[in-house]
Computed example of a mutant assay.
Amino acid sequence: MPPIKRAPTLKSTQLRHVLNVTQATSRHPERDCLAILLTHCAGLRCTETARLEVRDVLWPTGRLRDEVQLRAETTKNCRARLIFLTNPKLRAALEVYLAYRLTNRLGCSLDAAGYRGLMPYTRLLLTHRGSGFELVRKRRVLPDGRQAEYWAADALEARFRALYRAAGLKTSSHAGRRSFGTSLLKSGLSLEQVAILLGHADEDVTAGYIAVDRAQLRTMYEFAL
């Protein structure tokens, strides 16, 4: 059976390079930098990123949330999970993009008192036309042979690939999730905790998903002893 091809994990220097290139070359750097950071700093999948709404990241008062309960209908396995928006770089990117939306009147309401004047049920990330990224209904075969339908944000995924390609990397949005999970494990979280934050029902899926080198395994083993 051929090995499963997985997106590479990115070092912090590589992530900075991708963000710098995006800032310099993208026509919509505020949105695109935020999209990249949502995968790297919160572990979101591409479609989960596309389906985030303004109300998910803002309180009605306009204050940024620290935690977001992803709705079950927006996740891959239809299980609600908690994500955290506490990373300083991620919060700064959110502030920049929300200000950009207000300045350019993208998805704004007539009521400036709530949600900073943005319509709460609009998608957080908008295309250049001011609408959410299109979702495509697809099918996949589950391990038990059953077929399941799911939504895929192919247009946003293509955008991710283009951003990485501009930075000299051939990878997908999954590079963010894999880097996120790997970083959490290296920081001392258990495999079970990483699985919860990634939204995996099975720790075996997480174990095959993240990147752990031999040196790290040896260090973890010696620490456990």
Rank of each mutant, 00 (worst) to 15 (best):
Y221E: 06
L15S: 04
S26F: 00
A99N: 12
T74C: 03
G117N: 09
Y150S: 06
T127I: 01
I83F: 07
A175L: 02
C46G: 04
L90V: 04
V21G: 02
K76M: 06
Y150C: 06
H17I: 00
W151T: 10
D56S: 08
S179K: 07
M1I: 10
L198P: 00
A155Q: 14
K76L: 07
E203D: 05
T206W: 09
L64I: 13
E192R: 12
R116V: 05
C33W: 00
D66M: 13
P120Y: 04
K76G: 06
G199Y: 09
N77Q: 11
Q147P: 11
L184G: 03
W59L: 12
Y221F: 12
R139I: 12
Q14I: 00
A50K: 01
D32F: 00
C46Y: 00
L110H: 10
V96L: 09
K186I: 12
L37N: 02
R146Y: 07
M119A: 12
A155L: 11
G130E: 02
R129E: 14
S179I: 03
Q193S: 11
K170R: 12
E67F: 11
G145N: 09
R16H: 13
A112K: 15
T182S: 13
F160L: 05
T39M: 07
N87S: 11
E134V: 15
R45D: 02
R139L: 13
R214G: 01
R65C: 12
A158W: 06
A201G: 14
E73T: 12
R81F: 14
A207E: 10
V68K: 05
K170S: 15
A152Q: 15
T219R: 13
L58K: 10
T74R: 09
Y221L: 13
F160W: 10
C46R: 06
V141R: 14
S179T: 15
E157I: 02
L118W: 02
G176D: 06
L163C: 07
N87I: 01
E53M: 10
L191D: 08
A72S: 11
K76D: 08
A50T: 07
